[in-house]
Design a protein around this nucleic acid. Structure first.
Length: 450
RNA sequence: UCCUGAGUAGCUCAGUUGGUUAGAGCAUCUGACUGUUAAUCAGAGGGUCCGGGGUUCAAGUCCCUGCUCAGGAGCCA
């Protein structure tokens, strides 16, 4: 517990002090005046409350101070907590004294509409608005739910390096930097390989940190820097992996429903849709998904010689893009998993299905309401020879993977894991229209400030 | 990398077929008001129409070009 050193109160606790005098510190969220009466909507990070300054109840100086306030000025005020049904939230403060800490200059973000570009340029101030404030609180809840879930289920937190000598999957474009005399280093796009090593030391681990991708993606689903949690479990097969993924997502959503009702209400999120997020989720193999696309005449969109062409029926072996995933997801009102993708379109470390080596034991979890891919995971190749063969086949630098191959040399076991994108998840739960709204300071292809 | 769209006041936008001095709401400033919720009322200030070039008697408007931004594809969480 925090010691009670505070000389002021927080708005979230105000209901405990009805009839009493309190001191609040915060910022002017909005203002309106009516002659001898000034209304101040005060925010302090924990909530917003209406404070009423009546000329006859305060000193001349305090009233002049109240009149001179501007949006986002910081202040300290004292007054009595009263119940008033005219006040938003049901309570208000009858102000008896008021001191300005700093009189804010003309604040750029007004209560009226603004464009996306303007708001993102003022991200450092935009975070103060009620919608962004609510999203950040849901984000904090999602982070906590993730940690609670793993910590409470026997997982150990394991931190993987950010600077790495090679591309983890060998596909994605990475940010590059010079690393002393050792040549180039890259910002990690995934902690998975390191999580595998620690899973063989600790059993069940999760790594939780930022990931970096230098792809020139410019959509409302992509960031160049995002947060990902990656559990990795020794002795888990693909089914165990999918079960865990479903448990985790169910836990996160239910935790947010339990602890973020106010925030979800501010965001006008239809929570009945989130309440449906209960296990079991839907599952479908890649092959069954292709059959469904063929039956429903969903084509493959491909670029051949610079021309866009539609290929029908959808050919087995091609990867799904957003159009295919969205079409499949439209029938479902909770997340679903597609598993057992063609070997050729998936990463080298994924284990081949012993029943059908044309597919790997991989899985993607897609979210409803156009949330897109929330999770990507797989059972890992645990056979030394097969893994080496895949590394060679993909032309990956064998030397860099020597330590990784060692894991298959010394007590190799079946193991699995997955990665969950935090921002994708928060975007889905909050119903935010753009991923840049769900991380405090988004990093995107054409923007690195603020 | 490719495709599409946008750029006019601090902010959000309107601006007709090219035609007089480029408009509105909000914000700001001045004044009125004891119950406002994006208050209301009266008044005031505020413009490199993204930059450059061109067509024309005349360009915010048409053409070329550059810049900036947005969305989508591919890639993925």
């Amino acid at each position: 517990m925090l010691s009670s050193y505070k000389s002021f109160h927080y708005i979230e606790d105000i209901h405990k002090y009805v009839g009493e005098e309190v001191t609040l510190r915060g910022w002017v969220y909005n203002l309106t005046g009516k002659g001898k009466l000034q209304f101040i909507m005060l925010r302090d990070g924990t909530g917003v409350i209406q404070c009423v300054v009546f000329k006859a109840n305060v000193s001349e100086e305090a009233f002049e101070n109240a009149k001179s306030l501007t949006q986002e000025s910081s202040l300290s005020l004292t007054g009595k907590v009263v119940s008033n049904e005219k006040a938003p939230g049901g309570f208000e403060i009858d102000v008896t004294n008021l001191q300005i800490i700093q009189l804010a200059q003309e604040y750029p973000i007004t209560p009226k509409d603004h464009g996306d570009s303007f708001l993102i340029e003022h991200r450092h101030l935009w975070l103060r608005s009620s919608r962004q404030h609510a999203i950040m609180r849901v984000r904090a809840a999602v982070m906590k739910a993730i940690r609670d879930f793993f910590d409470g289920n026997g997982f150990k937190l394991m931190d993987s390096p950010i600077l790495t000598p090679n591309a983890c999957e060998g596909t994605s474009t990475l940010f590059e930097t010079e690393y002393f005399d050792l040549g180039k280093a890259y910002l990690s796009q995934s902690g998975q390989l390191y999580a595998e090593a620690t899973a063989l030391a600790l059993g069940k681990v999760y790594t939780f940190g930022p990931a970096f991708r230098a792809e020139r993606s410019k959509t409302r689903k992509h960031l160049t820097e995002f947060w990902m949690v990656e559990p990795e479990m020794a002795f888990f097969d693909l089914n165990d992996d999918m079960d865990l993924a479903e448990d985790l997502v169910e836990y996160i959503v239910q935790y947010c429903l339990k602890t973020c009702q106010k925030e979800l209400q501010t965001l006008e999120r239809d929570t009945t849709k989130l309440e449906k997020v209960r296990r079991p989720f839907h599952r479908m193999s890649y092959s069954d998904a292709v059959d469904w696309l063929v039956e429903n005449k969903i084509p493959l969109n491909k670029k051949i010689d610079g021309k866009d062409v539609e290929i029908l029926p959808f050919p087995w072996g091609e990867d799904f893009g957003s159009p295919q995933e969205e079409a499949i997801m439209e029938q479902f009102d909770k997340p679903m998993i597609i598993h057992r993708y063609p070997t050729e379109i998936k990463a080298f470390y994924m284990k081949r299905d012993p029943i059908n080596p044309k597919v790997v034991l991989a899985m993607d979890m897609l979210g409803p309401e156009r949330a897109g891919e929330l999770i990507g995971g797989s059972q890992r190749e645990d056979n030394f020879d097969l893994l080496l063969e895949r590394i060679k086949h993909e032309d990956l630098p064998e030397d860099e993977f020597k330590w990784y191959l060692d894991l298959r040399r010394y007590g190799s076991v079946p193991h699995s894991g997955f990665g969950l994108g935090v921002e994708r998840t928060v975007k889905w739960i909050t119903g935010a229209t753009h991923i840049r709204e769900v991380i405090p300071f988004p990093r995107m292809i054409y923007r690195i400030t603020p």
